[in-house]
Design a protein around this nucleic acid. Structure first.
Lengths: 229, 229
DNA sequence: GACAAGCAGATTGTCGACAATCCTACAAGA
DNA sequence: TCTTGTAGGATTGTCGACAATCTGCTTGTC
């Protein structure tokens, strides 16, 4: 008989669902940076009272993707080039640490999961689903954090990807180009399976730098435009 | 005429004050790990309705010092040896990064602030005020994060010190010993003023390791006791 | 026309009450 | 004895309404 492993049951509070809905709207760019969230309107749309909505918004404020000014409102965070720069430079450091911690803990299950997530990225890429592509790519990247066996590190990473996902989504929406067909994660996955930890760490740095430059350029353009307007 | 630099005005929402009150109670150990927070009772004590209290609790949950289970309650997080280990190992990495980023930005104001915070620690030590000593020591340590000019890094650090402060406070309360009179931060401050960045980074690691070992031993003892009971 | 005072209108912050859920104790049945 | 079902009380989750605050406009004065 197969070993059943019941996971925790789904959160059944309205608050949790609101958090999920709002987060998704923000991370996919449906709610744009700087935009104000009108409590009454959103509550009506969701057929929910303002109490759980406000609690949900508090969570997202602490998560770093909303910002709140007393008696003025709650807004989607603005994306500045410096924010992206900050997030990425920290991400590099964390990546190195995560790889180091994960390295000795790699096993067959790790490699299987790595392949599985890699496959998910490729599938989203083939389907030209940019939103899903970003999601899956970040999940692929997040495996080393989940495997590092350090809950604080994992939390930190999860806070970071919220923003990164938002940045990427904005970038993609702005470009509105078909996704590159090549498999940019091939090397990353291969190195994580290999024996040279330093090489994997180095690649993580450089691989990130690649997308990073594009993002930064986009963000700088954004700022110039908005400062003109 | 001196340049006036008006800081932001105080938050005037009840929510913000509740957050401050609760956070302080948790970080000083007045609310013990694992303890349940009864909304009705706390609301009555603070002469406040449950709405702002619940929002405040949501923030602290996201901050990582409370944990919430739907329909069951909100609890102060438990302190396990692994949590401390995780937090500290990440802290080492972040310290190194913060020092690196700060190094080139050091100026006279930095050195002055460093001395000022160092003095605050010494003063709290002389006054035998352990709670304040922990606070000031963490603030001294946090200067490199404030100076690193990386908002994401700073946020991450602030999330970390919430827990560290809680751990330290518990430790101190448990020992209930007079605080060591020697100045353990002397070398740290001197190296941050010096010219050898690597040395400063190395010391940050080792300096932390020192207190860390004590904390870990304490936490392990705690866990054994609770598993027995 | 410029500027300050003051008045709606809209929006956020807070409150008290109700609904949904959980935990405990206890009884009934196998 | 162990399990299962079932009230009862306590606590959390949610709602609708009221209070506090901000914003933009209007009005009046110079």
């Amino acid at each position: 008989m197969a070993k059943l492993d019941f996971g925790p049951i789904a959160d059944t509070t309205r608050r949790a669902e609101i958090v999920a809905l709002l987060r998704r709207a923000i991370l996919t760019g449906q709610l744009e940076p700087g935009q104000k969230l009108n409590e009454l309107r959103i509550a009506e749309q969701m057929r929910v009272s303002r109490a759980p909505l406000r609690e949900a918004m508090r969570e997202l404020v602490q998560e770093g993707i909303l910002t709140s000014i007393p008696y003025a409102g709650t807004f989607v965070i603005d994306v500045t080039a410096k924010d992206i720069d900050d997030a990425y430079s920290l991400n590099k450091v964390l990546d190195e640490f995560a790889i180091e911690r994960t390295w000795k803990l790699r096993d067959q299950r790790f490699f299987d999961e790595l392949d599985s997530r890699h496959e998910a990225v490729k599938q989203a890429t083939r389907a030209l689903d940019t939103t899903r592509q970003i999601e899956t790519a970040l999940q692929l990247h997040g495996l080393i954090y989940e495997w590092a066996d350090n809950s604080v590190l994992l939390e930190t990473w999860q806070r970071l990807i919220s923003r990164l996902q938002m940045y990427f989504a904005l970038h993609q929406r702005a470009r509105n180009e078909p996704v590159p067909a090549e498999d940019v994660h091939e090397t990353y996955v291969r190195l994580l399976k290999g024996a040279d930890m330093r090489a994997a760490q180095r690649h993580a740095r450089e691989h990130i730098d690649l997308d990073f430059e594009e993002l930064l350029a986009y963000a700088r353009g954004l700022e110039q435009r908005t400062s003109k307007g």
